[in-house]
Amino acid sequence: MSAIMERFTGSGRFSLPVSLKTREAIAAYTFLAPFLIFFAIFFVRATIASVEMSFYDWRLLRPTRPYIGLQNYLELFDDPIWWSSVVHTLYFTAMTVVGTSVVGLAAALAVTRPIHGRGFFRVLLYIPQLMSVGAVGLIWNWLWSGQFGVINYLLSFFGVRPINWLGEPDLVLPVLSFTTIWWTFGFPMLIYIAGIQGIPEHLYEAARIDGASGWQSFRYITLPLLRPTILFVTVTGVIGHFQVFGQPYIITGGGGPGRSSWTVIIYLYQQAWVAFRMGFGAAVAVVIAIIMAIITTFQFKIISRPVEY
């Protein structure tokens, strides 16, 4: 015991307080080393390289890589296909984030009522979220089929004539959004459940005593107290859905009809891995990153505002 005391008080043979501090720092950086090495190679280096590459006309199949300054960016900003891809992505993201948030919140409100089987419904409603976009794409591509699709069959009972869902440029983004809402509303649902369960029960009791209706307690208790949760769901939803790739890649055959479901990531994929324009692709990636950083910063600004009641 006294030996240990000595080590801590520094009355031993070495001047321990200083070396203990150093030893802790050495230990800390040993623990950090694997992470920092991987992070430096695959994130820091790659991010810097991407910015650098964006100033070169770097094509995979050509030996020379001339420096061209801002040419890649100018070409990108001049490309109507790029701008339409941006518009498609924003349109898709807006519809999908609102859709998943609303369906997720409604589902969360329902399964937090004191009813039998609520645990069962939670598990059941989360199933689509666990599927791969591959399986989701294969199934929904067939459901939306204009010729023999079951969705057209269901609608025919309401007198709707068959619609060529995946062949209509104006319909294809809502169709992909609807599919994505089916696939991903489970995550917001579970986050909302946690948020709802965090609201103190006595607030509702007080409201009931004051004669508040169900709608009033929802409007004046649940909704305001869920604001941080709603914002979390919105931020993660925007980041996630802005990167949409698999749904157009599989369901509309890579962004069809024509280019009407090209998203920014499909555009990036086309430039870098179909046309093999690595320098131009790097410029696309940098611009996508900047757009997402702006959207995220904007949302964090809203989040960090104090909650008002």
Binding site: K21, E24, A25, A27, A28, Y29, F31, L32, F39, F42, F43, R45, A46, T47, A49, S50, V51, M53, I239, Q243, I265, L268, A272, M278, G281, A282, A285, V286, I288, A289, M292, A293, T296, T297
Partner: peptide, 29 residues
């Protein structure tokens, strides 16, 4: 652990969450 650079390094890592992974795709490929 207490070590020089703990707070700034962690803050730096958190800040990089703002930079989406797409930007690393081509150099990593």
């Amino acid at each position: 652990l207490n070590f020089p650079g703990n707070k700034p390094l962690f803050a730096f890592l958190l800040a990089t969450i703002m930079i989406p992974g797409q930007v690393t795709l081509i150099p990593n490929y």
